[in-house]
Each structure stands twice: as structure tokens, then as C-alpha cells.
């Protein structure tokens, strides 16, 4: 399907996503609700949601591209740029802080040679701090991509890093 918004000729979505987009659209009583799930799908596929992809989604849902951009910038889990292969997200909120998230973060900074918000030069790691992950009973917690690593310590995170494949 080809469509036009903002004077831009829109390419169709990659075929591998088309069916899944249809499924998402079919799930909701109103089309608008499909926006975030579609953005999540694109991110899962491409690693991030480019401006171009945002425009494509806008065209498909017949909403302004600026609206889509507003949504992308609001939600911390949706990214408009590429990050490292492994996204290390250290929870820094109170319960994790009380149980040692700071030495853990310091250790990761030393070990990876990057600061928060940065990606290692080889593109393998991105380091972030995040707010409470809803896992405070097993603090401190690091989320790496989709997985939670609980009850972490500098020693334990070493073992985890070793297990991350290239």
C-alpha cells in the first residue's frame, strides 16, 4: 500500500511486518490505540524508530507525523536512534540505591569505559540508569534488553557480562 502525507511519498512497510501490523490494528476498537504497539513492533525489528519510520506510521494511521513524534518522545522505552546491542539499564531508585545500585553502576562504567547514556565504541553496550523497575525486593536490579537481572553485585554482573554473546 502506498500513501501520501505531508507531501511525502510513503513506502510500504517491510512485508515481514505487514501481517503483524494488520493483527495489531485488528485487535483494538479504535485505530489510535495501535500506535504504540506498532512503534514497539518497528523497534523490535529495527532496534529503533527512525524519523522515516515515524512518518510511515503516521501515513498508515492517518495522523500527523508530529503527533507520532510527540508520542515517541514521551515514552522512555521508544527510541529514535540506534543504541548498543546490549542495553544495560541500572535501576537507581531508592530501594535499589539502598542495596547498592551505585557501586554497581560505578563498576559498569569502569568496566565498559562509558558513562550513562553512552554506547561503547564497538557498539556492543549502552549504559543507562532507569527508574524503579517494579522488582525492589530483589534489588539492585539491572535490565539488559528484555531480561531482568536481580540481586546484582559488581561480582555477579561480571558473570552476566561474560554470558552476553557477541
Amino acid at each position: 500500500m502506498s500513501d501520501r502525507t505531508n507531501g511525502l511519498a510513503m513506502e510500504p512497510f517491510p512485508a515481514r511486518l505487514e501481517d503483524r501490523i494488520e493483527t495489531i490494528l485488528g485487535r483494538y476498537p479504535r485505530t489510535g490505540s495501535a500506535l504504540v504497539p506498532i512503534l514497539q513492533l518497528i523497534q523490535e525489528d529495527a532496534g529503533f524508530v527512525s524519523v522515516r519510520a515515524q512518518e510511515q506510521v503516521a501515513a498508515r494511521l492517518r495522523i500527523p507525523a508530529a503527533f507520532v513524534a510527540g508520542v515517541v518522545s514521551f515514552y522512555t522505552m521508544i527510541r529514535d536512534r540506534k543504541i548498543g546491542k546490549y542495553h544495560l539499564q541500572v535501576c537507581g531508585t531508592l530501594s535499589c540505591c539502598l542495596r547498592g545500585s551505585e557501586p554497581l553502576l560505578d563498576h559498569l562504567k569502569d568496566r565498559l569505559g562509558i558513562r550513562e547514556g553512552e554506547t561503547s565504541r564497538d557498539g556492543k553496550y549502552t549504559l543507562s540508569t532507569v527508574e524503579c523497575l517494579g522488582s525492589c525486593g530483589t534489588a539492585p536490579v539491572v535490565q539488559i534488553n528484555d531480561e531482568y537481572y536481580e540481586d546484582m553485585s559488581p561480582e555477579k554482573i561480571e558473570g552476566v557480562l561474560e554470558g552476553l554473546k557477541d
Binding site: 483494538y28 504504540v36 512503534l39 514497539q40 514521551f74 515514552y75 522512555t76 521508544i78 527508574e131
Partner: peptide, 10 residues
């Protein structure tokens, strides 16, 4: 029942 995932926002 429709299951919907949020995207990071307290």
C-alpha cells in the same frame, strides 16, 4: 480481553 503494553512512563 485485550492485552496492551506500556512503553515506559510512571
Amino acid at each position: 480481553i485485550i492485552l496492551h503494553r506500556g512503553a515506559g512512563s510512571y
